[in-house]
Amino acid sequence: MDNFGRKWDQFVEIFIHQNGYQKVVEGLQNTVVIAVLGLVIGILIGILIAAVRVVPKYKVFPRILNAICSVYVGFFRGTPIVVQLLVFYYVMLPILGLHKTGVQVSIFVFGLNSGAYISEIMRGGILSVDGGQMEAGRAMGLSFTATMLKIVIPQAIKNILPTLGNEFIALIKETSVVSFVGAADLYVAFNYIGSNSYEFMVPYLVMAVIYIVIVMAISLGIKLMERSLRKSDRRN
């Protein structure tokens, strides 16, 4: 234990007196920003793809769109996220001649990636809405798109909110690989502290605790949200 006490002191020394906390705050910020923006982009893409996939497919145009969406979902669900990050950062950017930071690329790739997963969740959500809702909207003269936007999708989102919360947790954890493209997240921050003290035990332990705290906070948020949804169902 004496040993651990010394390691702890070393960690505190770097964390507080050598500005290690600044790195951690920055890393935490990047982790959260990538996960939150990734989720937002993912939800938008997910809704779009899910809507395409439930459109009736008598005509050619919806079929083509549907095929494109299948390929998209297949690619992002069929390859590891690290590979996607590397491909976008080291292959796509040079080809397109773009200069983007690791954080920007991470937001983009995590958005596309979670879009693929969320589209499947969303599709389930849309299919779980009673078909009579679409019928009633169409029978009144609303277009397919208008009925989708005003009636079906809001109900679908309500149904899948808890699942989306879990997707958010998964995103927070998965962002721990963004250092592959040079984005400074929590891992980079604690790795920095560890390298400066030649001592990794305490930094990585603290990092694990931070992840656990974030995930527990989100879980609590989901629980509260579920409870309030259930309450509004009863009141309804």
């Binding site: 009673d130 809702q133 019928e135 009633a136 029978a139 009636i151 109900q155």
Partner: peptide, 11 residues
């Protein structure tokens, strides 16, 4: 149009 199962918009 009026349906057997009403189909009021739940949201």
């Amino acid at each position: 149009m009026v349906f057997q199962h009403f189909n009021l918009f739940n949201n």
